[in-house]
């Protein structure tokens, strides 16, 4: 059965955390609910799960690619057009370092931007469930549940202190 989203709005972080506790107690997997905020709250403020990401891998891979390209480009140029200057070796490091550094930086940056998009799951072309009151400081608790669990979840969120509960099907109420 496809899961449907339901969004509870809370005035305070404490109430939102209570809702998280209630969802956990009701057996809702932690991966099925999320806290939506207008500012980054400190880790564990809502007793939420730890969110791991792999963004750091992207620039690392990018830098390796750029480093390889830079070394190959400069080395192959010097091998193809060997010019002995002032007794320096054909493959001398200082001139190679400038180009290699730049190519390493540039690919690392490109991969980081791609990583941000990928790890943030952006862009999302379908409008998700959201409420503009979150921009006023309200905290949203977004739960994905089976269709038959929508009403019990709405009750649970309301009991935890939600001032409003919004559903994808247009249903709303506290």
């Amino acid at each position: 059965m496809a899961k449907l989203p339901i969004l509870g709005l809370f005035e305070s972080a404490d109430h939102a955390a209570d809702a998280g506790d209630a969802l956990k107690a009701a057996g809702v997997p932690m991966t099925d609910y999320d806290f939506l905020t207008d500012a980054p709250y400190p880790e564990g403020a809502f007793g939420e799960r730890e969110e791991n990401h792999r963004l750091y891998i992207f620039p690392f891979v990018g830098a390796l690619v750029g480093l390889t390209v830079g070394i190959m480009l400069t080395a192959m140029t010097q091998m193809a057009y060997p010019l002995a200057q002032g007794g320096k070796p054909i493959l001398s490091m200082p001139p190679m370092a400038v180009v290699t550094y730049e190519s390493t930086m540039l690919t690392a940056i490109v991969f980081t931007i791609i990583g941000i998009l990928f790890e943030s799951r952006l862009p999302a072309f379908k409008q998700g469930l959201y409420d503009t009151r979150i921009t006023e400081g309200y905290i949203g608790v977004l739960v994905n549940v089976d269709e038959d669990q929508l009403t019990p979840t709405q009750t649970l969120l309301t009991q935890a202190g939600a001032i409003d509960v919004v559903r994808k099907d247009g249903g709303s109420g506290a």
Binding site: D34, F35, L36, T37, D38, P40, Y41, E48, R49, E51, H53, L55, Y56, P59, M105, L106, A108, I109, T112, I113, G115, I116, E119, S120, R121, L122, P123, A124, F125, G128, Y130, I134, G140, L142
Partner: peptide, 28 residues
């Protein structure tokens, strides 16, 4: 900003992304 809803994951990635981009920006 399509797809940004302020989830914990998005805030974490934003924080890490700004740190990484900032570091690379400085180096560049």
């Amino acid at each position: 900003s399509g797809g940004w809803y302020g989830t914990k994951r998005q805030w974490n990635v934003q924080k890490a992304g700004l740190a990484l981009l900032g570091a690379f920006y400085f180096m560049t």
